[in-house]
Nucleic acid binder design. Sequence first.
DNA 1: ATTGGCAGTCGAAGGGTTAGAGTGCCAAGA
DNA 2: TCTTGGCACTCTAACCCTTCGACTGCCAAT
Lengths: 340, 340
Amino acid sequence: MVSERSLEVLRVIVQDYVASREPVGSKSIVERHSFGVSAATIRSDMAQLEEEELIAAPHTSSGRVPTDKGYRVFVDQLADMRPLTSAQRHAIEAFLGQSTDLDEVLVRTVRLLSQLTHQVALVQYPSLNRSRIRHIELVSLSEARLMTVVITDTGRVEQRVLEIAGGVDEAFLAELRAKANAALGGRELAEAAAILATFPDLFTAEQRDAVEKISARLVEQVAANRQDRLVMAGAANLVRTEEDFQGSILPVLEAIEEQVTLLKLFGEMQPDQHGMSVRIGSENASFGLGETSVVATGYTSSGGELARLGVLGPTRMDYSNNMAAIRAVARYVTRHLGEA
Amino acid sequence: MVSERSLEVLRVIVQDYVASREPVGSKSIVERHSFGVSAATIRSDMAQLEEEELIAAPHTSSGRVPTDKGYRVFVDQLADMRPLTSAQRHAIEAFLGQSTDLDEVLVRTVRLLSQLTHQVALVQYPSLNRSRIRHIELVSLSEARLMTVVITDTGRVEQRVLEIAGGVDEAFLAELRAKANAALGGRELAEAAAILATFPDLFTAEQRDAVEKISARLVEQVAANRQDRLVMAGAANLVRTEEDFQGSILPVLEAIEEQVTLLKLFGEMQPDQHGMSVRIGSENASFGLGETSVVATGYTSSGGELARLGVLGPTRMDYSNNMAAIRAVARYVTRHLGEA
DNA sequence: ATTGGCAGTCGAAGGGTTAGAGTGCCAAGA
DNA sequence: TCTTGGCACTCTAACCCTTCGACTGCCAAT
């Protein structure tokens, strides 16, 4: 059992260690904080914490360092999400305020987040399942090449190129375009596949082949969930914190470039009662990221839980600050995208 | 003056040093290569090279290492661009063969390049100046928000969102869309601004305000040269070669994320008679990249010199292999995009 | 429960030595 | 004039040893 004061000691150990990267000793604790007790007393508290495996010693005669379990307790029980400074709020406004399209919003968001947290920032593309189709465009690029564009009410534009042997004529394209827009405009993406399936019947036998091909492509395009992509910024911060990684940051950088791993990890994260998810060190071992922590939350564009955004960095990170920054940014992005 | 054999010695010093990261000594040269002379002779050749500042000694009694000037001579006079292995050619085919739209081609290209060279790969978005407008789409997203989409014959889609106070009605939008497509379809992007300037006169006084706003946005959109963006992959390779950087790789990673610096650097590069550009170490000092080399070449999509692609890495890199890989990939991409 | 005191432990830092690789130079040979 | 073997010299990397200092853990006293 850990006493009340012991938890307080854990808190300052986490804070001091995060701030200084030096193992924290009992003496420096009584110097820097006013516990009103002596170093020996702090030592016995530290013995308790060590008993519970919340802190550990790199070597016998050095200060103590939080374990992953210690960080976990800190995040769950001790971390206060202190509100951002007004300068920070101002930065968010200034940074995101003038964005035009979705891509731009995401890129600016991720840059902002990496600046606020000094970590690698990640933003997942929003899911489109609940969006509705605004417009479908078919453009012939050349003899045999055709481009299909789907525009949704969330401002997302999906484009594909496909080849049609023998080509298609403009009149047919116009007809298909008109029918597609009439039938699909305003519908949710999820409905599109069923509707498109009936399309070939609306055309003459000789056109049917092309219609089927185009429909198939549209279905695929509509199903292509952009949630399988994420935007990243701040890789330089990884190098800056390189010393916090026991091994090399190479696997971490590779995971970031792969994206797949991170998307899976994002998918597994369970939000707490404040909507924040934190995964710490060894909790990510199955992803080969046993020395990194991920802090994330969800954001929504127009209706429904849509996607996640957060940061990734060494276990030794400023959780309080990062959680606050992420929450603030997520709220702002949600508001900004919700205006659509 | 450097003798013929001295240059040959420079070549093997570069090759061996690149391969082993160890300073090269006269003894190891006679062991690994058959010059038919003794170590003492090689030493006098090395004295010549050192006199010319083509090689240097990290400390008095160690082997020699190429200087930036030495790499320069190597690249200009000694490097042979040995053709790729058939396995490598095969990889290019397999990797790029199935790409659909432009974005996809670029992303795949940059990944491929980083794999072939083990360096950070960079691909600049192609210039659109010579492309022609295929289609213009105006979509009302909500009361006051409108999306403009410009599609070009190179398969590029540019989208913007703008706000129109008071909104616009569908009929007007349809009219504007029709007129815009009639007037701009098939025209080069460069011509668009002039044509759009005449647009407000075609509409009634009360519509003019909205038309002006939309036209202005389209002009901006058409002028927005995508050449100011680049795609990047293989940052992990930087970490892998970290020891080749005297200082830290931090400024390099930052430059990569900034993009602006690299685009300027790309812009300054002068192709040699084979169309390849190589900038070595201190030649990039003005960009804060005095320890990195950049190898690049141009590629074209449909007509005209369009954009650049290449790799960036430590001065100690395998120039022969990288130049060959870049040239091969650029040729393939040019061919692939030219089919449009 | 808290405290001061004290012995004990361990890593980091400094100094000194050694082994080895490599050069530079020179005088002799082709 | 170029090449060669020999040899003295230089300098680093590695190793060991010692010292210094920070911290803990324990204990007896409060």
